[in-house]
């Protein structure tokens, strides 16, 4: 199946966020006409997007445009009123947030949500709980393959932490970490669930320029090492324009532009959404 697909060119529409290297592979995420109403208010409407297998995609827009709502819709925190989501070709409708994660979407949060009273390594280990081969009986008795499963989990968690050079902090309490490290740990925890796409909600919020540069480097490394897609919400334009291969601009819950960073920079509708109309500026 995989082989068949990879030999053929998957026909992508022109506005899909797929770079050349993914053109022969099926998309990781396909969203069709997604929408949600809160009471009478339409928060997101007609949101359609196709994301390639190893794409770094950006989701930008002015405050209140509905970016985080889109993330909440993708992870089924909110149930969409309209439209459907296909993850690796499978529909996520009717699934719980936990099930959607197991299908392959992991995310981070705008306001950090770590397990703050647990140690750093436990935060990572709890992230990979699906791959830890312990049943409830071995959890209770610490027998029946417990030590082997724990050893493998420990090694993998340390490997992941080491990837972000945080292995020396493994025993620290997650809540006591400095802000930047907490953000990194949240990304590690998301990666530990073995996703095919990671949604990062403002990963650079509150970071200084050098930390942001490091984060950009890390995001690229994640993509190259784990071969996964990344979708991020960010207000820091240097980061978005620097690493995103495809960008989707949202305003008032609707997509107003899609394309490469260069296209987005020149797009008059985007400029208008961010800066207002040209005529008004001249007056």
């Amino acid at each position: 199946m995989e082989n068949n697909n990879s030999s053929k060119l998957v026909p992508y529409p022109s506005n899909a966020l797929v770079t050349e290297r993914d053109l022969h592979k099926p998309p990781v995420l396909e969203v069709n006409h997604l929408g949600i109403d809160f009471g009478g208010l339409t928060a997101v409407d007609d949101f359609s997007i196709i994301i390639g297998r190893t794409e770094i995609a950006g989701l930008i827009g002015p405050n209140g445009a509905g970016k985080t709502t889109v993330f909440n819709l993708l992870t089924n925190v909110y149930k969409p009123t309209r439209g459907n989501i296909l993850l690796n070709g499978y529909s996520t409708s009717g699934k719980t947030t936990a099930q959607v994660n197991r299908m392959g979407i992991a995310r981070t949060f705008q306001n950090i949500r770590l397990f703050s009273k647990m140690s750093v390594i436990d935060n990572v280990k709890v992230g990979m709980h699906m791959s830890v081969k312990e049943n409830f009986l071995s959890s209770l008795s610490h027998g029946f393959g417990y030590s082997k499963a724990e050893k493998i989990a420990n090694e993998r968690a340390l490997e992941l932490l080491d990837f972000f050079s945080m292995a020396d902090l493994a025993k620290a309490q997650a809540g006591s970490l400095p802000y930047g490290a907490q953000r990194r740990l949240e990304i590690i925890r998301a990666l530990a669930t073995n996703p095919s796409i990671v949604l990062l909600d403002e990963p650079a919020a509150g970071m200084n320029p050098s930390e942001t540069a490091e984060l950009m480097e890390n995001i690229r490394r994640i993509r190259d090492t784990f071969n996964i897609a990344i979708m991020l919400i960010e207000h820091d334009m240097s980061l978005v324009m620097g690493i995103c291969e495809g960008i989707c601009v949202l305003n008032y819950g609707k997509i107003i532009a899609k394309g490469s960073p260069d296209e987005i920079k020149k797009n008059p509708t985007v400029i208008e959404a961010y800066l207002g109309k040209k005529k008004e500026a001249q007056d």
């Binding site: 936990a98 994660n101 770590l114 397990f115 009273k117 610490h142 998301a190």
Partner: peptide
Amino acid sequence: KSKAGRCIMAIRDNRIAAESIGIN
């Protein structure tokens, strides 16, 4: 000190995050 315990404490510390990493 087990998988189940970590999941339980994760739910205590932050239910929304626990759901987001696939904990039932």
